[in-house]
């Protein structure tokens, strides 16, 4: 079977998803996904990871359980999500209505020399999520589908995973702050107020 070409530009996708983001809480998996969210504009409600590979989605679960009245978006790559593939079962079992996971799937380990990930060999992370019990699952391949996904991220009251198939890109680095303690305190202050850091 001929595979569909990967055409979407990941930076454009992320910029569109974060347009008028409001008080959306945002976690990014390590590597290119963290650069993508930073290219769209660093933000106090961003928590970009520089490590902890495989932990982005389940870190988002913790945040979503702690802040049930806020929407939590995790943006990560296919390699990072594959490392934490079991966490999709953990998340689905909890079914947090306010968590959404977007996997930017270019079928490559982008930071290390573009080696093929298992999604290049047929692993379908959307199907995995569905089989784990995610109630809302999307696969996005075309530009006209992005606005619908943005609307779901903002509004849907249910657990969602979307795989966005994106092109292998050569975007310039857009590095977020890398002091983890600063990033932790920054988002806690933005969510819980400045006293949360001082206590």
């Amino acid at each position: 079977m001929q595979k569909a070409p990967l055409i979407l530009n990941r930076r454009t996708v992320v910029r569109e998803l974060l347009r008028e983001r409001g008080d959306l809480l945002l976690v990014a998996g390590l590597g290119t996904a963290a650069w993508d969210i930073t290219a769209a504009g660093d933000h106090a409600l961003n928590f970009p990871l520089w490590g902890a590979m495989g932990g982005a989605a389940v870190l988002g679960l913790g945040l979503a359980l702690a802040q049930p009245s806020r929407k939590v978006l995790v943006i990560t790559g296919d390699g990072e999500m594959l490392m934490g593939i079991g966490s999709l079962a953990t998340i689905a079992a909890q079914r947090p209505h306010n968590l959404r996971v977007v996997v930017l799937d270019n079928e490559r380990y982008g930071e290390t020399g573009r080696q093929r990930t298992h999604t290049a060999s047929g692993t379908d992370l959307a199907a995995v999520a569905r089989a784990c019990g995610f109630p809302q699952v999307r696969t996005i391949r075309a530009k006209h589908e992005i606005e619908g996904l943005r609307s779901d991220v903002q509004q849907i009251d249910d657990l969602l995973l979307a795989v966005v198939k994106v092109a292998v890109a050569d975007d310039p680095l857009a590095l977020p702050p890398r002091d983890g303690t600063y990033l932790k305190n920054r988002i806690r202050g933005a969510i819980l107020g400045p006293d949360s850091i001082l206590r």
Partner: peptide, 20 residues
């Protein structure tokens, strides 16, 4: 929260703390 592997619990605890 039942986990598939223990490391999930480390990241989960971090996320929970971010949210208070």
């Amino acid at each position: 929260v039942t986990l598939t592997t223990e490391e999930e619990g480390v990241a989960l605890a971090a996320g929970a703390y971010l949210g208070g």
